[in-house]
């Protein structure tokens, strides 16, 4: 699940659809309701703990990056200590850390994250514009990746071990091996500058999604092709597929209707997990495509020592990731009781 410029998703063993289940614990069967409740409670408490540590760390670390008052007064001629003190006062930087942190935590609940140090724009307003942009890009990247990897994964599974399987695997690894910002710049040169088909940057209509989503999507494809292939291989071995085939249904129907539907749930769970990872890796791509998302926001904020914006962006992203992981955990825990004791 750790991600970055190149997205790689490590899925803990317990979450694998076909992963081996610990034999010693495998036979425990269903738990009573009370245990389900305690499992949920435990997971939620853990998530709350993580939220507290993450926000605390972020708020604290940000304050080590430098004095925003100095930032704001750069280039303003002779700046006296008094001027700096005035600015710090106005930004409420003189308050003890714990007071500043508490203000921020309250903001998480009320949605009021204060004002940007650079220009005083409401941070909530900035986030409310940037978050949808980032989510939309992450979602379209997932869609691109899924649109590529489902047919490829199925094809690879059907032709397991044959040349097609190998070619698909190698090609998807090629996609994973590109430095993505570089790929992005090359795509811009070809499709925007030379062919002038697509807008080089910004978020303006559907066409502006194509290049960023493809760049991000290609990275996920290697992982997703493998996931689809593995899931399909298992499904294809199952009896009812043999039955469906025996009934004389067309191969397309068998693969895309019956088999795909059967492995939809584990696949969707993975895609959910990837989504969190995508959010973290999107910063670089946002920068190249000048995408008005959280990454661009965070990048400007750290450059300008804009504490309120930076801590809000990181926290919102972290909360999203924690939330998604929690949901996946709970879903899995409920579906597969053996995991609860882990």
């Amino acid at each position: 699940m750790k991600t970055g410029g190149g997205i790689s998703i490590a899925i803990p063993r317990s979450r694998k659809p076909s992963g081996r289940i610990d034999p010693a614990r495998g036979a425990l069967g269903r738990f009573p309701e009370a245990l389900v409740a305690s499992f949920l409670l435990k997971r939620i408490l853990q998530a709350v703990f993580v939220v507290i540590v993450v926000t605390l760390t972020v708020s604290f670390a940000i304050r080590l990056t430098g004095d925003p008052a100095l930032m704001l007064s750069q280039g303003a001629g002779s700046v006296t200590e008094e001027d700096l003190a005035n600015i710090r006062e106005a930004l409420r930087l003189n308050e003890p850390f714990i007071v500043q942190y508490w203000g921020f935590v309250k903001g998480l609940f009320t949605g009021d994250f204060g004002r940007s140090f650079l220009g005083g724009t409401s941070v909530s307003l900035l986030i409310s514009k940037a978050l949808p942009a980032t989510l939309a890009l992450a979602l379209s990247s997932m869609l691109v990746s899924i649109a590529i990897s489902i047919p490829l994964g199925i094809h690879a599974a059907v032709h397991k071990g044959k040349a097609a399987d190998q070619v698909i695997r190698i090609l998807s690894l090629v996609g994973l091996s590109f430095p993505n910002f570089w790929l992005a710049i090359m795509l811009v040169l070809v499709f925007s500058v030379m062919l002038q088909w697509l807008p080089p940057s910004g978020m303006s209509g559907l066409s502006s999604f194509v290049m960023p989503a493809v760049t991000m999507g290609i990275i996920l494809t290697a992982t997703n092709v493998r996931l689809v292939r593995t899931a399909m291989l298992e499904t294809l071995r199952s009896q009812y597929i043999q039955v469906a085939r025996a009934k004389g249904l067309s191969e397309t129907t068998v693969l895309y209707k019956h088999a795909l539907r059967n492995c939809a749930i584990p696949l969707i769970t993975y895609f959910g997990l990837q989504f969190g990872g995508l959010l973290g890796g999107i910063v670089v791509i946002e920068r190249v495509f000048n995408w008005p998302g959280l990454g661009t926001l965070a990048f400007d904020a750290v450059a300008g020592r804009d504490y309120p914006v930076l801590q809000a962006v990181i926290s919102v992203l972290s909360l999203l990731i924690i939330g998604i992981n929690l949901l996946v955990d709970i879903a899995y825990g409920l579906v597969d009781p053996r995991i609860r004791t882990r």
């Binding site: 649109a147 697509l198 303006s204 559907l206 502006s208 194509v210 397309t252 693969l255």
Partner: peptide, 24 residues
């Protein structure tokens, strides 16, 4: 064949999106 049909649809969706915004 089945492969190209699915990816063809995906591609068509993407291509349909092209003209908008590009040279607005």
């Amino acid at each position: 064949k089945k492969l190209s049909r699915t990816s063809g649809v995906a591609l068509a969706v993407l291509l349909a999106a092209l003209p908008f915004g590009a040279g607005a």
